[in-house]
């Protein structure tokens, strides 16, 4: 085989690979482009949502669970005033401030519940236990205490909670999404 023929052979091969590759890359690329769309989506700016009335929260230091109701969008479906999760609110004797804790376990995201004894929180999945103010009870599988949510009391006594989700399974409290 002579040199020009070899060169022609190489060029033909290279050209074949490039053409075939480009042709295949088009559907793969289009697919990936759409598939990666969720990465552009974010949970949006966290809003303060009214969850209860100050006077209706017993001031006995025992946390109580309140549903969080807000408008929600799930891809193409829009929900108006839909329960999206829950928070625990806790008020000390005579206090005009309220502590708000997310009911989502910071370990793996299950729904933390109050022990029937009312003395602590416990996650039904991996037994992470928390004190009534959300502190970690060692030793615990959970890497951090329950997530406190920003909470404010309006002038008419409405308790508003900044509804946010935090990444599970890490030591720091990082907002998710």
């Amino acid at each position: 085989m002579s040199h020009p023929e070899q060169r022609r052979g190489f060029l033909a091969k290279a050209f074949a690979v490039v053409c075939g590759g480009l042709a295949t890359m088009v559907p793969v690329g289009a697919g990936l482009w759409a598939f990666l769309d969720p990465l552009r989506r974010s949970a949006g700016v966290a809003k303060f949502l009214p969850v209860a009335e100050l006077a209706a929260i017993p001031d006995d230091g025992v946390p109580r669970q309140y549903p969080v109701i807000t408008d929600r969008v799930d891809a193409w479906t829009g929900f108006a005033a839909e329960p999206v999760g829950a928070v625990y609110l806790r008020r000390e004797k005579g206090a005009t401030e309220v502590q708000a804790l997310s009911a989502t376990c910071p370990h793996a995201g299950c729904f933390v519940e109050m022990e029937p004894t009312g003395r602590c929180f416990r996650c039904p999945c991996h037994n992470s236990t928390f004190t009534l103010d959300g502190g970690i009870v060692a030793p615990s599988p959970s890497p951090r205490a329950m997530d406190a949510l920003d909470c404010r009391v309006g002038k008419n006594g409405e308790v508003e909670v900044k509804w946010q989700k935090f990444r599970a399974g890490i030591a720091g409290k990082e907002v998710q999404g």
């Binding site: 598939f35 990666l36 969720p38 990465l39 989506r41 974010s42 949970a43 929600r72 799930d74 891809a75 193409w76 479906t77 989700k165 990444r167 998710q176 999404g177």
Partner: peptide, 16 residues
Amino acid sequence: PSLQQLVIGGPEYGHH
């Protein structure tokens, strides 16, 4: 975090 968001199809669980 990106992997999680890709798998669940956005910041929240739902259709996607």
